[in-house]
Design a binder for these strands. Structure first.
Lengths: 136, 136
DNA sequence: CAGCATCCGCAATGATACTG
DNA sequence: CAGTATCATTGCGGATGCTG
């Protein structure tokens, strides 16, 4: 078998997440870092929303991604799903207590972004403009 | 010519942002949400690190991804890069003041993950158990 | 209306080899 | 050692159509 360095690295990463148990936190971090997670969390901040409502709140999210994200959040116990078996099926999503605790952190993240977006925007322009000026 | 890789990334981001017409804050949020960003930030928490050292700290990061992430962070003014033009080129990375302010938030995120990983792990098992009643 | 399955294009990511 | 370009692969994410 030609298990080159690629396999080894990938195995290392997988083991890091699952086997060692020393860093399940990282696994969680990566879950949170998912593109739509923060947006869905913020959308559910005010209360429960239906699938269609959620989709309206989160701009640019396809039905597939939304469902996928919600499943992930539900699996992690951050979001609870309530299905009402009426004729038109109604499904409501809302944050669990654990979800709310994460929301608190997400708010801080959002706050930081709002506070520093000017600095970052400026830094970006400066970087893009003077990229050929190397520091030595 | 040396901008090709960066231009690709930049183009991708702008393409996404342009399609949705988003506020800069959300743009920043997505930057932070990048998979390796938090890990690199945490690695640089204690002080400056060289490229190779950084790579050792962040498990599973390829050289390409690391460089790419660092470039992104440098562009946003969160990380500063210091190149020493000695015979073996030495490059050190360290957080900027703005980077440190983000690090503070990242710490909270990490703290949350550590505090809640047990709950989440439990929720996951429970969820998976319920789903596995229907195995082929 | 909720959500799952399928096809598919493209961006993200990795490996490799090459500069300075 | 740090960094880049190039090619190959994959998995994300979008679109569509079908089920309950």
């Amino acid at each position: 078998m030609t298990l080159t360095a690629d396999q080894k690295r990938r195995r290392a990463q997988q083991d890091y997440n699952g086997g060692l148990g020393l860093c399940p936190a990282r696994q969680l971090l990566e879950t949170i870092s998912s593109k739509w997670v923060t947006l869905v969390m913020l959308a559910l901040a005010d209360g429960s929303l239906r699938h269609s409502e959620l989709r309206r709140h989160v701009a640019g999210a396809s039905q597939k991604m939304l469902t996928s994200t919600l499943r992930s959040l539900e699996r992690d116990g951050l979001v609870s799903r309530t299905v009402t078996s009426s004729v038109p099926v109604r499904t409501d999503y809302q944050l669990t207590p654990v979800g709310h605790s994460l929301l608190d952190v997400v708010y801080r993240l959002k706050g930081w972004a709002e506070d520093n977006m000017d600095d970052v925007a400026h830094a970006r322009m400066a970087y893009d403009r003077g990229r050929l000026t190397r520091v030595e």
